[in-house]
């Protein structure tokens, strides 16, 4: 009888002990605590496929933008730029067509002819990082996301799509002299304007001839 009592006591102790603790990966627990359970890869893909095209359609021609910035910078920024917070860095979704004048490891240089002369810019082909595309789209609000890190994942996802899907076929074919049609994001500093060193993070690239 006494033995039975001991067995029941030990069994009860084991039962309570087993249900009092659990083992799991610390990284998974932390992920759960931060509430970061959104499938950001799927979200980014949906954004790229279904939402970004509306922003691409509204892209301003690069010649038109540069001309407007030279004459009426405040109007250009007010009507065409997007930025998430406070500061001098603002982003534009632009489009254009130009001839390749040089190809390097990190970028392709284009010469774009316009009514007021020609314009040189670089298409980034290697270091596609940062928030240019996300912010130039003007479609996302930071405070609609659970945390900053989730919001930054959208940029990382978009850049990954560009690096994996947009750039490889272009880099494979592009050669000096080709004419390229592009759409992409440009960062401009509203306080320290510099229009002779424009760099485009591409969203669409097409060799037209």
């Amino acid at each position: 009888m006494r033995m039975l009592k001991y067995i029941i006591a030990v069994a009860a102790l084991l039962f309570v002990g087993y249900h009092s603790v659990y083992f799991g990966k610390l990284s998974e627990v932390r992920k759960g605590e931060s509430g970061n359970n959104t499938d950001m890869e799927a979200y980014t893909r949906d954004f790229w496929d279904n939402k970004l095209p509306s922003s691409i359609e509204k892209a301003i021609d690069i010649n038109e933008l540069v001309a407007l910035v030279k004459v009426e910078p405040e109007k250009a920024f007010a009507e065409h730029a997007h930025a998430l917070g406070i500061g001098n860095l603002q982003y534009f979704m632009v489009k254009g067509e130009g001839q390749i004048t040089a190809i390097s490891d990190n970028n392709v240089e284009l010469l774009i002819k316009g009514e007021d002369g020609s314009l040189k810019l670089r298409i980034e082909t290697e270091l596609v990082y940062g928030n240019s595309v996300r912010d130039a789209s003007g479609l996302l609000n930071m405070n609609a996301f659970k945390n900053t890190s989730e919001f930054n994942e959208v940029s990382a996802g978009l850049n990954k799509i560009i690096r994996k899907e947009v750039l490889p076929p272009f880099k494979q074919k592009a050669k000096k002299g080709d004419v390229v049609r592009f759409t992409g994001a440009v960062e401009l500093n509203s306080r320290f304007l510099k229009l002779d060193d424009l760099e485009v993070t591409p969203v669409q690239l097409q060799i037209v001839k």
Binding site: A83, G85, I86, G87, N143
Partner: peptide
């Protein structure tokens, strides 16, 4: 009020230090 308001950080190098 917006919960988070980011303030842009600008890269400063020898190319734009004069600004």
């Amino acid at each position: 009020f917006p919960q988070k308001v980011p303030v842009a950080v600008e890269l400063v190098t020898s190319a734009n230090i004069k600004n």
